[in-house]
């Protein structure tokens, strides 16, 4: 079946639907209308930019350009992770989260793109960019939950953490309960999505493939693969992000550097 292209007028018409949520949010004085406007504008500008950029990327399909684009995405995700985690953009966090994300992405890309799909061309843009983008987007979400949960609970429950240290725990032993909780919290949303996928929702990638004319079976096979990539990538990047940042944020006597926090939350 041929793909029905949306013309610009049709796309503009689709914005009219925002009137309904906009009215509800305004009626209940949520103060979110301004945010809705900014978010919509940002979405349009960012996606238009990416759309044009991807056209260029696909046309040249050069591994070096693709890698550079992936690096840009990782750097943006790095800053966004800290901003959304209510943590300051300190070197002690930016570098570890960058390293963790890049390691996770490289491993996942090499495994799925080169080993499983076995792309005829190294890091072919048509596959590498969307798959990396999807894994990275989910890594960002999980890192925000994981890193925030870990460091804020270490701060709020510092007496418990110090109690373990004072009983002779090594750094890894003392952070274990906080690490466990952060991993659980960050992995749970993806696990819930995996458990309900297909029943409650049809995922975006699969829908996109079906809309663009692929057979549903091909779309499902890709979707299963991408879910495995997302889950593995997110757990790995959260694990490495916490693990590596521990070396910089905890000092040589394992005390927490509290200058990383934006908020003054106390238990």
């Amino acid at each position: 079946m041929e793909v029905i292209d949306l013309n610009w007028l049709q796309l503009c018409i689709s914005f009219l639907i925002l009137g309904i949520p906009g009215f509800i949010l305004w009626k209940y004085k949520t103060g979110l209308n301004r945010k809705l406007l900014t978010a919509t504008l940002r979405m349009v500008i960012q996606l238009l930019f990416v759309g044009f950029y991807l056209e260029y990327l696909f046309e040249y399909d050069n591994p070096l350009i693709n890698i550079s684009w992936i690096l840009v995405m990782v750097v943006v995700a790095d800053f966004a992770t800290l901003d959304r985690s209510d943590l300051k953009r300190t070197k002690s966090l930016l570098i570890p989260i960058f390293l963790a994300t890049i390691f996770g992405i490289v491993l996942i890309d090499l495994f799925f793109l080169e080993l499983v799909i076995n792309l005829p061309k190294f890091l072919a843009a048509q596959y590498a960019i969307p798959i990396t983008g999807m894994v990275l987007g989910n890594c960002l979400r999980s890192n925000v939950i994981g890193i925030h949960s870990f460091y804020y609970s270490l701060k709020e429950k510092r007496e418990r953490y110090r109690f373990y240290l004072a009983l002779g725990a090594s750094r890894n032993e003392a952070v274990f309960p906080f690490f466990k909780e952060a991993l659980k919290r960050s992995a749970n949303p993806t696990l819930a999505t995996m458990a309900t996928i297909g029943l409650v929702s049809l995922p975006g990638m699969m829908t996109g493939q079906i809309l663009s004319g692929s057979s549903p079976l091909i779309a499902i096979k890709y979707q299963i693969m991408i879910m495995l990539a997302i889950f593995s990538g997110t757990v790995l990047s959260v694990y490495l992000g916490i693990r590596i940042s521990n070396y910089f944020v905890l000092d040589s006597t394992d005390n927490l550097d509290e200058s990383i926090f934006k908020q003054e939350k106390e238990s």
Partner: peptide, 18 residues
């Protein structure tokens, strides 16, 4: 400091083990 932590037991006033 690490030696002291290995050789002592610490009981805070409001013990919270979670």
């Amino acid at each position: 400091i690490h030696t002291i932590r290995r050789e002592c037991a610490w009981l805070p006033q409001d013990l919270n083990l979670g």
